[in-house]
Design a protein around this nucleic acid. Sequence first.
DNA 1: GAGACTTATCAGTCAATCAG
DNA 2: CTGATTGACTGATAAGTCTC
Length: 271
Amino acid sequence: MQFKLTTPNMELWRIENTFENIPHAHADFYQITIPVIGTCRLTQERRVYSISGGHALIQHPGEEHHFSLGPDGGVYIVQVRKQLLAEGWREEEPELDSRPLFNLEDIKKRMKTWTSELLLRDGPDPLAVEETEGRVLAYIRHMVGKNGSRVSGGLNVRHADRAFVSGMTDILEFIHAHYTERLTMDRLASLVYQSKFHFIRSFTQTVGVTPYQYILRLRIEQAKEQLARTRASVTEISYSLGFSSPSQLYRAFAKATGVTPEQYRKGAAPR
DNA sequence: GAGACTTATCAGTCAATCAG
DNA sequence: CTGATTGACTGATAAGTCTC
């Protein structure tokens, strides 16, 4: 059985039962192969691995690989566009843990949630897809980043941030639900019972960008959407997205995209 | 001329760093 | 882990430019 969901920047696969594919490589994607049922026999750069129980393997862009499953085997595969995973990392080439350990119950639950979000969205909604991509990316980054030791039976939780990580999904959901409002660091930090300073550090470490930058990105993406799909003025859009004035949107938009909102609208293909 | 878009400036806030 | 410090960045406002 094979199940696959594709978004602009990711592919989510669930493959079960007898399966074998031929050697191949992905030029622009990182692939994380996560064995969730039985054993997966994976060949990567001519080395053969038998992986099971959530002990995943990462296939880097351009790295040749193939794998096979027996009748009672099953894997999840997450493919993430190279630029997206590398974005926000301090190094140009992110240093990844080659053998990240995923908690089976946790990854099953998350895959179910992500696929539901992508399948059940109300019509073609690029922003909704992007929001799900953001959640997948945050989790994958957290799991494969090398700067944290792993705690068995849970997320890639370093130190006493376990409570924070368990509340991470809630924080991201809160931000996604309220990013058009005025959100302060104090307010967000209070949601996870942490000081503002510690919250910012933990969030940045987990997600890869600061909370403020994360909120700003959501707003810019929504602005792009509105510029392309509506005739609302830039001023109207800026206020509707929680910017306190149009100049905020101009400056942030120009910095993020390299063009002004009006230039973007002129260049956006009609839908 | 009016409205929309864009830029400049300054005060306030954010976030990285460091020390306790 | 927490909070103070400080440089960088954002928010607010005003004013210039452009288009109709």
